[in-house]
């Protein structure tokens, strides 16, 4: 029973990690590529960490919960780096399928020069 739960969690995690990177590789422009890694990998690594938590807790040396720390850290940092990357791309005017709003360019040309 434990084995099955662990295997399912590991497979789900690895699958989401893979899909995240697949999105990075096959999406057409930067802004659509951004979505794959930031979303799919948080759940992917998250469920791998839950699997590892269950695995080490079942080893008999008391429960193991420091995986929560990595999960928390990833969930806090992933949106921050996504926001910064997106902001940097808007600043550099990276080619985009959807037109970015005008006010970004106006504010951007005023700031930082």
């Amino acid at each position: 029973m434990l084995d099955i739960t662990l295997s399912v969690l590991i497979l789900i995690g690895a699958l989401f990690t893979f899909i995240g990177s697949l999105g990075l590789a096959r999406m057409p422009d930067f802004y659509t590529r951004l979505h794959g890694p930031t979303k799919a990998t948080t759940l992917g690594v998250g469920s791998l960490l839950i699997a590892s938590m269950i695995h080490f807790s079942s080893q008999g040396e008391g429960i193991s919960f420091h995986e929560v720390l990595v999960t928390l850290f990833l969930f806090i940092t992933a949106p921050v780096s996504a926001h910064l990357l997106s902001k940097a791309a808007l600043h550099l005017r990276v080619k985009s399928l959807a037109a970015p709003p005008h006010e970004v360019e106006e504010a951007d040309s005023g700031e930082g020069q």
Binding site: F30, T41, V45, S64
Partner: peptide
């Protein structure tokens, strides 16, 4: 573009965390 490469580096480290976690389960080592 540069943001693409940085995004790839970002994803690379998240993926390597996944690989390390898997190795940890495989070798039963904390």
């Amino acid at each position: 573009d540069e943001p693409d490469r940085i995004l790839a580096l970002d994803t690379l480290y998240v993926n390597s965390i996944a690989l390390l976690v898997l190795l940890g389960i495989h070798l039963s080592s904390e």
